[in-house]
Write a protein that binds this DNA or RNA. Structure first.
Lengths: 210, 210
DNA sequence: GTCTATAGGCGGATAGAC
DNA sequence: GTCTATCCGCCTATAGAC
Protein backbone atom coordinates (compact mmCIF):
# COMPACT_ATOMS: atom_id res chain seq x y z
CA UNK A 1 0.00 0.00 0.00
CA UNK A 2 2.68 2.40 0.92
CA UNK A 3 4.69 1.28 -2.05
CA UNK A 4 1.76 1.76 -4.32
CA UNK A 5 1.12 5.15 -2.85
CA UNK A 6 4.76 5.92 -3.30
CA UNK A 7 4.81 4.73 -6.85
CA UNK A 8 1.62 6.34 -7.78
CA UNK A 9 1.85 9.46 -5.79
CA UNK A 10 5.48 10.38 -5.38
CA UNK A 11 6.45 10.63 -9.02
CA UNK A 12 3.57 12.95 -9.57
CA UNK A 13 4.40 14.68 -6.32
CA UNK A 14 8.05 15.13 -7.25
CA UNK A 15 7.27 16.11 -10.71
CA UNK A 16 5.72 19.35 -9.57
CA UNK A 17 8.47 19.84 -7.05
CA UNK A 18 11.09 19.31 -9.70
CA UNK A 19 9.40 21.85 -11.93
CA UNK A 20 9.29 24.27 -9.05
CA UNK A 21 12.99 23.76 -8.37
CA UNK A 22 13.73 24.25 -12.02
CA UNK A 23 11.80 27.50 -12.02
CA UNK A 24 13.67 28.64 -8.92
CA UNK A 25 16.94 27.81 -10.64
CA UNK A 26 15.91 29.86 -13.65
CA UNK A 27 15.25 32.84 -11.44
CA UNK A 28 18.60 32.49 -9.75
CA UNK A 29 20.39 32.24 -13.08
CA UNK A 30 18.73 35.46 -14.18
CA UNK A 31 19.66 37.03 -10.85
CA UNK A 32 23.34 36.21 -11.29
CA UNK A 33 23.33 37.63 -14.79
CA UNK A 34 21.71 40.78 -13.49
CA UNK A 35 24.17 41.41 -10.68
CA UNK A 36 27.13 40.55 -12.89
CA UNK A 37 26.03 43.20 -15.36
CA UNK A 38 24.78 45.93 -13.04
CA UNK A 39 26.19 45.16 -9.61
CA UNK A 40 24.73 43.70 -6.44
CA UNK A 41 22.96 46.91 -5.51
CA UNK A 42 21.03 46.87 -8.78
CA UNK A 43 19.19 43.67 -7.92
CA UNK A 44 15.49 44.60 -7.95
CA UNK A 45 12.53 42.28 -8.12
CA UNK A 46 11.01 44.18 -11.04
CA UNK A 47 14.08 43.86 -13.23
CA UNK A 48 14.72 40.31 -12.08
CA UNK A 49 11.20 39.24 -13.00
CA UNK A 50 11.50 40.97 -16.37
CA UNK A 51 14.68 39.08 -17.16
CA UNK A 52 13.24 35.80 -15.98
CA UNK A 53 10.25 36.29 -18.27
CA UNK A 54 7.71 36.39 -15.45
CA UNK A 55 6.04 39.04 -13.31
CA UNK A 56 6.84 40.22 -9.83
CA UNK A 57 4.01 38.36 -8.05
CA UNK A 58 5.12 35.12 -9.70
CA UNK A 59 8.49 35.67 -8.13
CA UNK A 60 6.76 35.44 -4.79
CA UNK A 61 5.46 32.00 -5.75
CA UNK A 62 9.07 30.78 -5.66
CA UNK A 63 10.70 32.96 -3.03
CA UNK A 64 9.04 34.52 -0.06
CA UNK A 65 11.06 37.73 -0.20
CA UNK A 66 14.00 39.46 -1.79
CA UNK A 67 16.18 38.34 1.10
CA UNK A 68 15.21 34.75 0.38
CA UNK A 69 16.56 35.21 -3.13
CA UNK A 70 19.78 36.67 -1.78
CA UNK A 71 20.08 33.80 0.64
CA UNK A 72 19.66 31.26 -2.14
CA UNK A 73 22.33 33.10 -4.11
CA UNK A 74 24.61 33.10 -1.09
CA UNK A 75 24.10 29.36 -0.70
CA UNK A 76 24.99 28.80 -4.34
CA UNK A 77 28.09 30.94 -3.98
CA UNK A 78 29.14 29.08 -0.85
CA UNK A 79 28.56 25.77 -2.62
CA UNK A 80 30.75 26.87 -5.51
CA UNK A 81 33.41 27.88 -3.04
CA UNK A 82 33.30 24.51 -1.33
CA UNK A 83 33.52 22.73 -4.67
CA UNK A 84 36.47 24.85 -5.66
CA UNK A 85 38.28 23.83 -2.52
CA UNK A 86 37.40 20.17 -3.04
CA UNK A 87 38.65 20.24 -6.61
CA UNK A 88 42.16 21.32 -5.67
CA UNK A 89 44.74 18.63 -6.49
CA UNK A 90 47.04 17.52 -3.71
CA UNK A 91 50.63 16.81 -4.64
CA UNK A 92 53.59 15.95 -2.45
CA UNK A 93 54.75 19.55 -2.55
CA UNK A 94 52.87 21.57 0.09
CA UNK A 95 54.25 24.86 -1.15
CA UNK A 96 53.07 24.16 -4.68
CA UNK A 97 49.67 23.16 -3.33
CA UNK A 98 49.33 26.39 -1.41
CA UNK A 99 50.23 28.37 -4.49
CA UNK A 100 47.66 26.45 -6.50
CA UNK A 101 45.03 27.21 -3.92
CA UNK A 102 45.94 30.89 -3.86
CA UNK A 103 45.74 31.14 -7.63
CA UNK A 104 42.42 29.34 -7.64
CA UNK A 105 41.01 31.58 -4.91
CA UNK A 106 42.04 34.81 -6.57
CA UNK A 107 40.67 33.68 -9.91
CA UNK A 108 37.45 32.57 -8.25
CA UNK A 109 36.98 36.00 -6.71
CA UNK A 110 37.91 38.30 -9.56
CA UNK A 111 36.05 36.27 -12.16
CA UNK A 112 32.75 36.99 -10.42
CA UNK A 113 32.92 40.15 -8.37
CA UNK A 114 29.32 40.25 -7.10
CA UNK A 115 29.68 36.67 -5.94
CA UNK A 116 32.83 37.66 -4.06
CA UNK A 117 31.12 40.66 -2.52
CA UNK A 118 28.10 38.65 -1.45
CA UNK A 119 30.19 35.82 -0.04
CA UNK A 120 33.04 37.65 1.63
CA UNK A 121 32.24 41.30 1.99
CA UNK A 122 28.79 41.19 3.60
CA UNK A 123 28.00 44.31 1.61
CA UNK A 124 24.25 44.06 1.03
CA UNK A 125 22.56 46.42 3.50
CA UNK A 126 19.61 44.50 4.93
CA UNK A 127 20.91 41.01 4.31
CA UNK A 128 22.48 38.40 6.56
CA UNK A 129 23.00 34.88 5.23
CA UNK A 130 21.28 31.98 6.93
CA UNK A 131 23.49 30.29 9.53
CA UNK A 132 23.81 27.05 7.58
CA UNK A 133 24.95 28.80 4.41
CA UNK A 134 27.36 30.84 6.40
CA UNK A 135 28.74 27.77 8.11
CA UNK A 136 29.28 26.20 4.71
CA UNK A 137 31.42 29.14 3.66
CA UNK A 138 33.37 29.17 6.90
CA UNK A 139 34.00 25.44 6.86
CA UNK A 140 35.72 25.79 3.51
CA UNK A 141 38.39 27.67 5.39
CA UNK A 142 39.36 24.37 6.97
CA UNK A 143 40.91 23.32 3.69
CA UNK A 144 43.18 26.33 3.80
CA UNK A 145 44.02 25.65 7.41
CA UNK A 146 45.04 22.13 6.50
CA UNK A 147 47.07 23.34 3.55
CA UNK A 148 48.93 25.78 5.76
CA UNK A 149 49.48 23.13 8.39
CA UNK A 150 51.16 20.94 5.80
CA UNK A 151 53.49 23.87 5.23
CA UNK A 152 54.26 24.03 8.92
CA UNK A 153 52.07 27.07 9.50
CA UNK A 154 49.83 26.46 12.48
CA UNK A 155 49.55 29.75 14.31
CA UNK A 156 46.00 31.10 13.80
CA UNK A 157 47.51 34.55 13.46
CA UNK A 158 49.41 33.37 10.44
CA UNK A 159 46.25 31.97 8.92
CA UNK A 160 44.73 35.41 9.35
CA UNK A 161 47.74 36.96 7.69
CA UNK A 162 47.37 34.55 4.79
CA UNK A 163 43.71 35.38 4.25
CA UNK A 164 44.46 39.09 4.51
CA UNK A 165 47.13 38.82 1.86
CA UNK A 166 44.98 36.92 -0.60
CA UNK A 167 41.89 39.08 -0.22
CA UNK A 168 44.17 42.10 -0.35
CA UNK A 169 45.26 41.12 -3.84
CA UNK A 170 41.66 40.50 -4.81
CA UNK A 171 40.44 43.80 -3.39
CA UNK A 172 43.08 45.89 -5.08
CA UNK A 173 42.53 44.09 -8.36
CA UNK A 174 38.80 44.70 -8.26
CA UNK A 175 38.95 48.29 -7.07
CA UNK A 176 41.86 49.61 -9.07
CA UNK A 177 42.35 47.45 -12.15
CA UNK A 178 39.09 45.64 -12.78
CA UNK A 179 39.93 44.61 -16.31
CA UNK A 180 43.63 43.84 -15.90
CA UNK A 181 45.90 41.58 -13.89
CA UNK A 182 48.07 44.11 -12.06
CA UNK A 183 47.54 42.42 -8.71
CA UNK A 184 46.46 38.91 -9.61
CA UNK A 185 49.81 38.33 -11.30
CA UNK A 186 51.51 38.95 -7.95
CA UNK A 187 50.08 35.87 -6.31
CA UNK A 188 53.28 33.83 -6.77
CA UNK A 189 55.39 36.58 -5.25
CA UNK A 190 53.24 37.04 -2.17
CA UNK A 191 52.95 33.30 -1.64
CA UNK A 192 56.74 33.00 -1.73
CA UNK A 193 57.02 35.92 0.66
CA UNK A 194 54.55 34.37 3.06
CA UNK A 195 56.15 30.95 2.98
CA UNK A 196 59.63 32.38 3.33
CA UNK A 197 58.55 34.01 6.56
CA UNK A 198 56.28 31.42 8.13
CA UNK A 199 56.71 28.01 6.49
CA UNK A 200 57.98 24.82 7.92
CA UNK A 201 60.30 25.62 10.75
CA UNK A 202 59.52 22.37 12.47
CA UNK A 203 56.08 20.96 12.93
CA UNK A 204 55.07 22.90 16.02
CA UNK A 205 56.29 26.32 15.20
CA UNK A 206 54.92 28.82 17.66
CA UNK A 207 54.76 32.56 17.63
CA UNK A 208 58.29 33.42 18.60
CA UNK A 209 60.07 35.20 15.81
CA UNK A 210 63.16 33.82 14.26
CA UNK B 1 49.10 95.30 -1.93
CA UNK B 2 47.84 91.83 -1.81
CA UNK B 3 47.29 92.26 1.86
CA UNK B 4 45.25 95.39 1.34
CA UNK B 5 43.14 93.70 -1.25
CA UNK B 6 42.63 90.91 1.11
CA UNK B 7 41.65 93.18 3.93
CA UNK B 8 39.49 95.57 1.99
CA UNK B 9 37.88 93.42 -0.57
CA UNK B 10 37.60 89.99 0.75
CA UNK B 11 35.70 90.69 3.95
CA UNK B 12 32.73 92.43 2.38
CA UNK B 13 32.64 90.48 -0.83
CA UNK B 14 33.32 87.18 0.84
CA UNK B 15 31.15 87.55 3.81
CA UNK B 16 28.19 85.94 2.18
CA UNK B 17 30.47 83.46 0.57
CA UNK B 18 31.97 82.59 3.92
CA UNK B 19 28.53 82.03 5.36
CA UNK B 20 27.69 79.88 2.40
CA UNK B 21 30.85 77.87 2.90
CA UNK B 22 30.02 77.51 6.55
CA UNK B 23 26.58 76.22 5.68
CA UNK B 24 28.08 73.79 3.20
CA UNK B 25 30.47 72.59 5.88
CA UNK B 26 27.57 72.02 8.26
CA UNK B 27 25.83 69.88 5.67
CA UNK B 28 28.97 67.85 5.10
CA UNK B 29 29.45 67.33 8.82
CA UNK B 30 25.90 66.02 9.07
CA UNK B 31 26.54 63.83 6.03
CA UNK B 32 29.57 62.20 7.62
CA UNK B 33 27.64 61.54 10.81
CA UNK B 34 24.87 59.97 8.79
CA UNK B 35 27.06 57.61 6.80
CA UNK B 36 29.08 56.67 9.87
CA UNK B 37 25.90 55.62 11.61
CA UNK B 38 23.96 54.02 8.78
CA UNK B 39 26.45 53.33 6.01
CA UNK B 40 27.25 54.98 2.72
CA UNK B 41 24.23 53.50 0.97
CA UNK B 42 21.91 55.14 3.50
CA UNK B 43 22.87 58.66 2.47
CA UNK B 44 19.63 60.26 1.32
CA UNK B 45 18.91 63.94 0.85
CA UNK B 46 15.77 63.74 2.98
CA UNK B 47 17.57 62.35 5.99
CA UNK B 48 20.60 64.55 5.43
CA UNK B 49 18.47 67.68 5.35
CA UNK B 50 16.63 66.58 8.46
CA UNK B 51 19.88 66.12 10.36
CA UNK B 52 21.25 69.41 9.11
CA UNK B 53 18.13 71.19 10.36
CA UNK B 54 17.03 72.35 6.91
CA UNK B 55 14.78 71.06 4.15
CA UNK B 56 15.64 69.24 0.98
CA UNK B 57 15.26 72.22 -1.38
CA UNK B 58 17.63 74.24 0.80
CA UNK B 59 20.17 71.53 0.25
CA UNK B 60 20.03 72.41 -3.41
CA UNK B 61 20.97 75.97 -2.56
CA UNK B 62 24.36 74.65 -1.46
CA UNK B 63 24.94 71.64 -3.68
CA UNK B 64 23.63 71.14 -7.15
CA UNK B 65 23.01 67.41 -6.73
CA UNK B 66 23.59 64.43 -4.51
CA UNK B 67 26.70 63.58 -6.49
CA UNK B 68 28.06 67.04 -5.75
CA UNK B 69 27.72 66.24 -2.06
CA UNK B 70 29.49 62.93 -2.51
CA UNK B 71 32.23 64.68 -4.44
CA UNK B 72 32.72 67.22 -1.67
CA UNK B 73 32.89 64.36 0.81
CA UNK B 74 35.42 62.56 -1.36
CA UNK B 75 37.53 65.71 -1.51
CA UNK B 76 37.45 66.02 2.27
CA UNK B 77 38.42 62.39 2.66
CA UNK B 78 41.27 62.78 0.21
CA UNK B 79 42.41 65.89 2.03
CA UNK B 80 42.42 64.03 5.34
CA UNK B 81 44.43 61.28 3.71
CA UNK B 82 46.99 63.75 2.41
CA UNK B 83 47.26 65.38 5.82
CA UNK B 84 47.73 62.02 7.46
CA UNK B 85 50.63 61.30 5.16
CA UNK B 86 52.12 64.73 5.76
CA UNK B 87 51.88 64.31 9.52
CA UNK B 88 54.01 61.19 9.62
CA UNK B 89 57.28 61.72 11.49
CA UNK B 90 60.48 60.80 9.70
CA UNK B 91 63.21 59.23 11.78
CA UNK B 92 66.53 57.78 10.71
CA UNK B 93 65.07 54.29 10.74
CA UNK B 94 63.25 53.59 7.46
CA UNK B 95 61.81 50.35 8.72
CA UNK B 96 60.32 52.03 11.75
CA UNK B 97 58.94 54.77 9.54
CA UNK B 98 57.26 52.29 7.26
CA UNK B 99 55.74 50.54 10.23
CA UNK B 100 54.48 53.86 11.56
CA UNK B 101 52.90 54.63 8.21
CA UNK B 102 51.27 51.21 8.04
CA UNK B 103 49.82 51.58 11.51
CA UNK B 104 48.56 55.05 10.70
CA UNK B 105 47.00 53.91 7.45
CA UNK B 106 45.19 50.96 8.99
CA UNK B 107 43.91 53.09 11.83
CA UNK B 108 42.82 55.78 9.40
CA UNK B 109 40.77 53.25 7.45
CA UNK B 110 39.14 51.21 10.17
CA UNK B 111 38.32 54.24 12.30
CA UNK B 112 36.03 55.57 9.56
CA UNK B 113 34.77 52.79 7.35
CA UNK B 114 32.51 54.83 5.05
CA UNK B 115 35.38 57.22 4.42
CA UNK B 116 37.57 54.26 3.50
CA UNK B 117 34.91 52.84 1.20
CA UNK B 118 34.33 56.16 -0.51
CA UNK B 119 38.01 56.86 -0.94
CA UNK B 120 39.41 53.46 -1.84
CA UNK B 121 36.63 51.13 -2.80
CA UNK B 122 34.68 53.21 -5.33
CA UNK B 123 31.58 51.55 -4.02
CA UNK B 124 28.86 54.14 -4.57
CA UNK B 125 26.86 53.09 -7.65
CA UNK B 126 26.37 56.25 -9.70
CA UNK B 127 29.34 58.18 -8.38
CA UNK B 128 32.78 58.92 -9.78
CA UNK B 129 35.00 61.45 -8.01
CA UNK B 130 36.08 64.54 -9.86
CA UNK B 131 39.53 64.15 -11.47
CA UNK B 132 41.21 66.67 -9.20
CA UNK B 133 39.98 65.00 -6.02
CA UNK B 134 41.03 61.67 -7.37
CA UNK B 135 44.46 62.98 -8.25
CA UNK B 136 44.83 64.27 -4.72
CA UNK B 137 44.21 60.80 -3.35
CA UNK B 138 46.55 59.15 -5.82
CA UNK B 139 49.33 61.65 -5.21
CA UNK B 140 49.35 60.72 -1.54
CA UNK B 141 50.68 57.37 -2.68
CA UNK B 142 53.93 59.14 -3.51
CA UNK B 143 54.70 59.35 0.18
CA UNK B 144 54.47 55.60 0.46
CA UNK B 145 56.60 55.19 -2.64
CA UNK B 146 59.28 57.36 -1.05
CA UNK B 147 59.06 55.49 2.22
CA UNK B 148 59.53 52.19 0.44
CA UNK B 149 62.40 53.59 -1.58
CA UNK B 150 64.16 54.51 1.62
CA UNK B 151 63.82 50.86 2.54
CA UNK B 152 65.40 49.84 -0.71
CA UNK B 153 62.11 48.82 -2.27
CA UNK B 154 61.80 50.34 -5.72
CA UNK B 155 60.08 47.78 -7.90
CA UNK B 156 56.56 49.04 -8.65
CA UNK B 157 55.34 45.49 -8.26
CA UNK B 158 56.54 45.53 -4.68
CA UNK B 159 54.68 48.77 -4.06
CA UNK B 160 51.55 47.02 -5.32
CA UNK B 161 52.25 44.14 -2.99
CA UNK B 162 52.62 46.54 -0.11
CA UNK B 163 49.30 48.26 -0.80
CA UNK B 164 47.59 44.90 -1.23
CA UNK B 165 48.88 43.73 2.13
CA UNK B 166 47.78 46.82 4.01
CA UNK B 167 44.33 47.05 2.47
CA UNK B 168 44.03 43.32 2.95
CA UNK B 169 44.36 43.77 6.69
CA UNK B 170 41.87 46.62 6.57
CA UNK B 171 39.36 44.70 4.49
CA UNK B 172 39.43 41.61 6.66
CA UNK B 173 39.18 43.71 9.80
CA UNK B 174 36.14 45.57 8.50
CA UNK B 175 34.36 42.57 7.01
CA UNK B 176 35.00 39.95 9.65
CA UNK B 177 35.78 41.64 12.96
CA UNK B 178 34.38 45.16 12.76
CA UNK B 179 34.56 45.82 16.48
CA UNK B 180 37.81 44.06 17.31
CA UNK B 181 41.47 44.13 16.33
CA UNK B 182 42.00 40.63 14.99
CA UNK B 183 43.71 41.89 11.83
CA UNK B 184 44.86 45.37 12.75
CA UNK B 185 47.10 43.91 15.43
CA UNK B 186 48.96 41.98 12.74
CA UNK B 187 50.36 45.07 11.10
CA UNK B 188 53.77 44.68 12.72
CA UNK B 189 54.03 41.06 11.63
CA UNK B 190 53.14 41.70 8.02
CA UNK B 191 55.44 44.70 7.85
CA UNK B 192 58.32 42.57 9.11
CA UNK B 193 57.42 39.87 6.63
CA UNK B 194 57.33 42.35 3.76
CA UNK B 195 60.61 43.98 4.71
CA UNK B 196 62.32 40.65 5.27
CA UNK B 197 61.49 39.71 1.71
CA UNK B 198 61.97 42.95 -0.17
CA UNK B 199 63.94 45.46 1.88
CA UNK B 200 67.45 46.59 1.35
CA UNK B 201 68.36 45.15 -1.97
CA UNK B 202 68.56 48.68 -3.29
CA UNK B 203 71.09 51.39 -2.73
CA UNK B 204 69.87 53.41 0.22
CA UNK B 205 69.17 50.78 2.79
CA UNK B 206 70.54 51.99 6.09
CA UNK B 207 69.86 49.79 9.06
CA UNK B 208 70.15 46.09 9.48
CA UNK B 209 67.17 44.25 10.80
CA UNK B 210 66.51 44.29 14.48
C1' DG C 1 17.50 81.50 0.96
C1' DT C 2 14.10 79.06 2.96
C1' DC C 3 9.98 77.20 3.02
C1' DT C 4 5.45 74.08 1.45
C1' DA C 5 3.92 71.22 -1.89
C1' DT C 6 4.51 68.06 -5.34
C1' DA C 7 6.18 65.85 -9.52
C1' DG C 8 7.72 61.49 -11.41
C1' DG C 9 9.90 57.27 -10.72
C1' DC C 10 11.37 53.04 -8.55
C1' DG C 11 11.46 50.08 -4.44
C1' DG C 12 9.19 45.68 -2.08
C1' DA C 13 5.14 43.51 -1.41
C1' DT C 14 0.00 42.14 -1.82
C1' DA C 15 -5.16 41.49 -3.43
C1' DG C 16 -7.88 39.16 -6.16
C1' DA C 17 -9.38 37.48 -10.84
C1' DC C 18 -8.59 33.47 -13.68
C1' DG D 1 0.70 29.58 -10.63
C1' DT D 2 0.26 33.40 -13.23
C1' DC D 3 -1.56 37.39 -14.29
C1' DT D 4 -3.40 42.77 -13.85
C1' DA D 5 -3.83 46.33 -10.85
C1' DT D 6 -2.45 48.58 -6.96
C1' DC D 7 -0.66 50.10 -2.23
C1' DC D 8 2.52 52.59 0.25
C1' DG D 9 6.92 54.30 1.01
C1' DC D 10 11.26 56.40 -0.25
C1' DC D 11 14.08 58.46 -3.72
C1' DT D 12 16.02 62.84 -6.29
C1' DA D 13 14.73 66.95 -7.92
C1' DT D 14 11.84 71.13 -8.94
C1' DA D 15 8.01 74.87 -8.86
C1' DG D 16 6.61 78.68 -6.75
C1' DA D 17 5.18 81.45 -2.55
C1' DC D 18 7.35 84.44 0.80
Amino acid sequence: MQIIRTVLKKPAGNWREARRESARANVLTAAWELVREDGLAALSLRELARRAGITTPTLYAYFESKNAILDAMFAQAAQSFVELKASLPATDDPQEDLLTEARAFVTFCVSDVPRYQLLFQHSVPGFTPSPESYELAVSALAVTRELLARNGVRDPRHLDIWTAITVGLVGQQISNDPDGDRWTRLVEDVTRMFLAQYAGRGSTHSKGES
